[in-house]
Structure formats: C-alpha cells, structure tokens
Amino acid sequence: MRFFTAFTLTALFAVVSAHFQLQFPPPRGAFVEDQEPNFCDGYDSVASNRTSFPLNNGIISLNSEHPQWTAAVFITNVSNPTSFDNFTQITPFFQENIEGSFCMAFDLSQTNATGLTNGENVTIQFLFDGGDGQLFQCADLTLDTSANVSSQSCTNATSSSSSGAIGTPVPAVGSLLGLTAGLVGVAFALL
C-alpha cells in the first residue's frame, strides 16, 4: 500500500511540475521553468529583434508537457507592455488533449483584434494551464502582410481533439486545478 501511495504521489508531482514551451513565434527569451507563472515568463522587456508575423495564415506552435490543457491568446500594441492589463484576449479559451508538439492556425484577421495594420509592432501572450496553474510566454512581433510562415513546421502529436486549428472552447482556465488539488488531497489521505 505504501509503494502504491508513493508511486501515486510521485506521478502527481510529475504532473504538477510539467510545463510548456512556445516554439513559434519565438518567445522573448530562453525558457525559464521557474519564471513561467510570471508575466511573459519573467521577461519584462520587449525583444530587440521582433519576429515578422503575417496578418493572415499565421501559426502558433508549442511543446506541451501536459496530456490535457487549456489555453488562450492575448495581444497588445503597447510598445513596451509591462503588465497583464496591457493585453486584450483575442481567442476564446480552448482545450486540447495533446502532449508533445502542438500547432494551430492563427489568423489574426479572424480574431477579435481590431485595427491591426501592416508594419505594426505587437506582443502576443500565450496563457497555458495544464492543471498546475497559469503559465505565460510572450512573443514580440512586427505584423507583415508579406510574411510567410510556411517554412515553419506545423505538426501535432497524436491527439483526440486537435485539428490543426484552435481546439475545443472551454468556459474558463483553471477547471483542472480543482481536479489536481483533489487528487493530491486523496493521495495524502492515503498516507
């Protein structure tokens, strides 16, 4: 019984410490595991080298270390955003059942973002919640109608819900937090 309990706790803590890494567009800086819960993964300044990103037919790709997760994308045209308040949500929250490589179509012209223009500098912030809390990464972009992301790999690991576009909408981030907390409570009760 103690072996089972120890194994269960180890598995739960492995889930709790899992993360994600934004692949494209490239994030502001190198992945820093301990900074993910912070604004823009702890990178408070805009990258000096913004990525050219199309207004139409863009993609977002990431690596998920969670088998199920919820996410949303936010945007700002503030030249040097310093807080969450600078951002506006431009996708509904969506849920995916995929661990590993994930890629989705991200057509800015099809989001609720308004007034975006060719040559404009923007920052997107990707919110990711795999059940262990909200994690954030930012990418600094220059919108370019001639930018072509077809050279970027857009593949998904095996998934039951992913179709290459934004996945299943969900009402809010954090619904998995209660499940994880409940499982941890049960495991401790077994000790």
Score class of each variant (00 low, 15 high):
Asp41Pro: 04
Asn38Ser: 12
Pro27His: 08
Leu55Val: 11
Ser48Gln: 00
Gln35Ser: 15
Leu62Trp: 01
Val32His: 07
Asn63Leu: 13
Val73Pro: 00
Ile75Thr: 03
Asp41Glu: 12
Leu12Met: 01
Ala14Lys: 11
Asp34Thr: 14
Val73Gln: 04
His66Met: 12
Gly42Leu: 07
Pro67Trp: 05
Val32Met: 14
His66Gln: 07
Gly58Asn: 05
Val46Lys: 06
Ala18Gly: 11
Ser52Glu: 15
Ala72Leu: 05
Ser48Trp: 01
Glu65Ile: 05
Ala72His: 04
Phe20Ile: 14
His19Tyr: 12
Glu36Cys: 14
Ser52Pro: 09
Phe31His: 13
Gln68Thr: 10
Glu33Met: 10
Leu22Tyr: 01
Val46Thr: 04
Val16Leu: 03
Gly42Ala: 06
Leu62His: 03
Pro25Arg: 03
Asn38Glu: 15
Phe13Asp: 07
Pro37His: 08
Asn56Leu: 08
Phe39Gln: 11
Phe20Asn: 05
Pro37Trp: 06
Asn77Gly: 08
Ala71Lys: 01
Arg50Gly: 03
Ile75Tyr: 00
Cys40Asp: 01
Asp34Trp: 02
Ala18Arg: 06
Asn38Pro: 10
Asn56Trp: 05
Gln23Ser: 15
Trp69Glu: 10
Ala14Thr: 09
Gly58Phe: 00
Val16Met: 10
His66Trp: 07
Val16Lys: 01
Leu22Ile: 14
Gln23Met: 14
Ser61Trp: 01
Asn38Gly: 12
Thr51Trp: 03
Pro37Ile: 14
Ile60Asp: 05
His66Cys: 06
Phe39Glu: 02
Val46Gly: 05
Val73Ile: 15
Asp41Phe: 06
Leu22Pro: 04
Leu55Ile: 08
Val73Arg: 03
His66Glu: 09
Asp34Val: 09
Ala30Gly: 10
Val78Lys: 00
Glu65Met: 04
Trp69Gln: 13
Cys40Ala: 06
Asp34Met: 13
Glu36Phe: 02
Ser61Phe: 01
Ile59Asp: 02
Ile59His: 04
Ser52Cys: 11
Arg50Tyr: 06
Ile59Asn: 05
Pro27Tyr: 05
Ala71Gln: 09
Phe53Trp: 10
Thr51Met: 10
Ile59Gly: 11
Ser61His: 04
Thr51Gln: 12
Ala47Glu: 08
Phe39Arg: 05
Tyr43Cys: 06
Gln68Met: 03
Gly58Trp: 02
Glu65Asn: 06
Asn56Thr: 15
Ala71Arg: 07
Val32Asp: 12
